[in-house]
Write a protein that binds this DNA or RNA. Structure first.
Length: 401
DNA sequence: TCTGGGGTCCTAGGACCC
DNA sequence: TCTGGGGTCCTAGGACCC
């Protein structure tokens, strides 16, 4: 049966949300109307563009590029710091509103939702529902959304990406050729800049070129990935809107250090701090991890990682940190480090292997300690308590200032 | 003042087993 | 003793997304 799928996408989410939040707090300047960008702290080496206003875009400023470059392109561009607390808040409010329309709804990212309206139309047309959502969001929150309407998720997502902002587009089967095939292949979901040169070599410039190729030629050139993008180009996608909160496959935290670290003890301190964050989030979800993974990025942006499977899945900060510390020692070659990260994998809801009696005692003690710390964090905020040895990342040695 | 942080999925190659 | 081959598990690295 033909499905009715909606993809709701917040226009310029971080910038719009920052703008709306400022206006709500009495500011009169709407940063959507000036050359503006949202970015991180350059002094902390987190200076990348996370969002740009339409005018900033006209200057050629791109998401993900250094703020330094953005200023070169447009010296008068104004930068505003990101505030994820505000973003999550608006994201939740939007989600609540969309839940009024269907139970089959999937949060695809902080600013995107898929809605399966197939059994929730109640005699209305998908387009009319989209119109109502679009209008209500605008009036209630002050930001706008694009909505794509199609018979599957891929086409709905492609549709919401057409003309912006504040627009509703359909992309039904009979519109694929006229609306999607004419687009450059780089516009297709999952086609990134690494596969572009390879596609170009195959004389594939548009999504239509890709769609008209033989499927087997793409599989030959790209393997499984080739099959996926060939199907996408042809508008084929049978995936379901996932409306039950799915368990994550991995959880991790990483930090770009305020300056390059060449000292393993300093790296260990940061590692402890991010391990605490990760294990806290793991316990929040009531999950256990079987694999610990440590990543490093050098000052030259070379990334390396080291991981090991544990005998028993755990969520203990101590156990995971001890393992992470060993992995770091084995991985670290003494070169200046820009970023350190930890990730836990192989997540389950149980300690998969029974603990031996020998382990149980000390484990219980650690579990209690973790539980106490978590409770305090829940009550007074995440940063109120840290184990001894946590580094203050604001602290930069004088010589490097 | 040059380059974030959180994820998912895939692949290649090695170890190990039968 | 001149050397198979299938299957599974594990690790490292990479592409892609927002």
């Amino acid at each position: 049966m033909e499905r009715a799928i909606l993809h709701v996408d917040v226009n310029n989410a971080f910038l719009s949300w920052t703008a709306v939040d400022r206006l709500k707090h009495g500011e009169t300047l709407d940063i959507r109307t000036i050359p503006a960008i949202i970015g991180g702290d350059e002094k902390q080496r987190k200076g990348v563009v996370l969002a740009k206003s339409p005018i900033a875009k006209q200057f050629g400023i791109q998401t993900g590029e250094p703020i330094y470059f953005a200023r070169k392109k447009c010296p008068k561009v104004q930068m505003f710091r990101s505030n994820f607390k505000v973003y999550y808040d608006y994201s939740n409010q939007l989600y609540q509103l969309l839940c009024e329309y269907t139970d089959k709804i999937e949060r695809f990212s902080i600013d995107e939702c898929f809605m399966d309206m197939t059994n929730y139309l109640r005699g209305r047309k998908p387009y009319d529902i989209a119109l109502e959502i679009n209008k209500r969001v605008k009036e209630k929150f002050g930001f706008t959304v694009n909505i794509g309407i199609a018979s599957n998720k891929l086409l709905a997502k492609m549709a919401s990406d057409f003309e912006k902002p504040d627009k509703i587009h359909t992309l039904y089967e009979n519109e694929i050729e006229s609306k999607m095939w004419v687009l450059p292949v780089s516009e297709l979901f999952m086609v990134g800049k690494k596969s572009l040169p390879k596609l170009e070599k195959m004389r594939i410039k548009t999504i239509g070129d890709l769609a008209k190729k033989e499927e087997k030629d793409l599989i030959k050139a790209f393997g499984k990935y080739g099959k996926t993008i060939w199907e996408y180009a042809n508008g084929i996608d049978n995936s379901e809107v996932i409306y039950e909160q799915e368990d994550p496959k991995c959880i991790g935290n990483s930090v770009t250090l305020p300056y390059d670290f060449s000292d393993i003890e300093k790296l260990q301190e940061v590692l402890l701090s991010i391990t605490e964050q990760t294990t806290y989030r793991l316990r929040k979800r009531g999950m256990y991890a079987a694999v610990v993974n440590v990543q490093l990025k050098t000052n030259e942006f070379k990334v390396s990682s080291h991981q090991r499977k544990l005998l028993t899945a755990t969520n203990s900060t101590k156990v995971i940190y001890e393992e992470a510390k060993k992995l770091l020692q084995e991985l670290y070659k003494g070169i200046p480090i820009r970023l350190i990260g930890i990730r836990v994998d192989g997540l389950t809801h149980k300690e998969e292997v029974q603990l031996s009696m020998f382990d149980t005692k000390s484990n219980e003690k650690q579990e209690k300690l973790d539980a106490v710390i978590d409770k305090i964090k829940d009550k007074y905020g995440y940063n109120t308590i840290t184990r001894a040895g946590k580094i203050d990342l604001e602290e930069v040695p004088d010589k490097l200032k």
